[in-house]
Design a protein around this nucleic acid. Structure first.
Lengths: 260, 260
DNA sequence: CGACACCTTGAAGAGGTTCAAGAAATGTGG
DNA sequence: CCACATTTCTTGAACCTCTTCAAGGTGTCG
């Protein structure tokens, strides 16, 4: 949704959208200045609309690695736009098994699960020290009545999440281990690339067990599949550091050519 | 969202919410009269609001068994509230495998996947002759600016879909075949029960293969698992007719007691 | 440096898939 | 209304992928 400037990062001054480094403390806390704005907010907002949207952010909140942003059962009040850091969300079955339902990074929104029953139905846990913008949902609803682009934006974010989950269902319902892991890596790479990171290298923020939970596999299977990719010279893995050697091979694993 | 009265069904006259049988042709086509209103619309709307919401329905549309309500790639314009009939939605991977992402029945809404990219990203196919109310999405957005309860309602519907999909991910990611099928049956029963059907008997509208796709299993496994439940005297199955004998056993399969 | 969490690898085993055949239901056309 | 084709469902047997159990290695943090 929206966020605030990151210290020591590239921000744009108010009405001058040039790329200028500025000291953190000199920046007005405002979405208009946030370097994640393109991810959080719709394009083409007027200055007036931007100013009003700043009021949507109640506070920023820091979450330490391992801590919960919210828990299953917590009263729902707000959505959270991730400013920095990395989260996982997970649901638990009654008998204690749990399932990672997603990994979220800067510029993404968590908390949509809470709207329907006014209570969260999953846990959101920081996988590294993180900071989020707290967006009270009733303010979002209020503002989106005034700013049509924002209303549309909120709807698109929710729809995007639904479509993402369709993709996960396809993965869990019909792919084999190698395909799942390849799809997972490509998805992470693509999202990191949008954020300016390398297309061929990444650092996993989660354990093998968390990857396994997300992909419907056991941690041993994840580990073995990584090893298999290494044997096949598709990637180089050193703990959580992954370097992609043959990105086409990964793509081919996910969707085998029709002509093959 | 909203629907129109079903011929030969129980409807309520305009401002008199008593239960009265009326001829289909004599009923004003209006959400206020629809017997699915409690499923489609928020509670506590004023008469004025109800009248305005009627304008949200563009037309009704009939879909024959086996036909598509929409297809992957179709331009998105509207959401669809199911009046009668039964649908499946499915996504396809690039190499042709496809995955059923859900089964939808009267009072439920399909089409949410299309909002994000203005194109549908899945197929919606009628599993029996069906009728839907067509709800142009820009009208929904417009109306929800005027009627707060409607805005909230739309948000809740989208959030509910996200939470439902979390449940499916848990099922696909961590349950065994018996657990999946038991959870599936209980879910269908519960939804049918809300609609006034029996809690102990149902007619499956989909094939074993479609159930399998939804549950991440092959059709043979679905069939075998049904047979297993029959052997264990949990259900009686005769083709698509299923009668539940021991509902507690099903519940126990889904979430084994902690104290066992 | 030692404790702890995380990762890798091997071997055995289970659950689900694949392949195949036949039975039951459904639909079609004469 | 019946015969035939088609689709759907069931069941068996062999196979395969992933899991489970176990042990040891690697990295990290107080």
């Amino acid at each position: 949704m929206l966020t605030h400037p990151v210290p020591n990062s590239i921000g744009a001054a108010h009405t001058i959208p040039s790329i200028v480094s500025v000291d953190a403390h000199s920046i007005k806390v405002a979405c208009a200045n946030c370097n994640l704005r393109e991810l959080c907010l719709p394009l083409g907002l007027s200055q007036d609309e931007l100013d009003r949207i700043d009021n949507m952010v109640e506070v920023r909140r820091k979450i330490r690695r391992g801590a919960n942003l919210f828990r299953n059962g917590d009263r729902f009040t707000s959505l959270y736009a991730i400013r920095t850091g990395f989260f996982k969300t997970c649901v638990a079955s009654e008998d204690g098994r749990d399932q990672v339902t997603g990994f979220q990074m800067a510029g993404e929104v968590v908390g949509l699960d809470g709207i329907v029953n006014e209570r969260h139905s999953c846990d959101a846990i920081a996988l590294e020290d993180a900071e989020v913008c707290v967006l009270p949902f009733d303010r979002i609803e209020e503002m989106s009545n005034q700013i049509h682009a924002l209303q549309r934006h909120v709807h698109r974010i929710m729809s995007r999440e639904i479509v993402r989950e369709h993709g996960v269902m396809l993965l869990l319902g019909s792919m084999r281990a190698e395909e799942r892991l390849a799809a997972f890596l490509l998805n992470l790479l693509q999202r990191l690339h949008v954020r300016g990171f390398s297309q061929s290298e990444l650092v996993l923020r989660m354990t093998r067990e968390e990857i396994g939970s997300y992909l419907g596999l056991k941690l041993e299977t994840v580990s073995r599949t990584f090893s298999k990719f290494v044997d096949e010279k598709i990637v180089v893995v050193k703990q959580r550091h992954v370097r992609i050697i043959d990105s086409d091979a990964l793509k081919k694993i996910v969707s085998p050519q029709v002509c093959s």
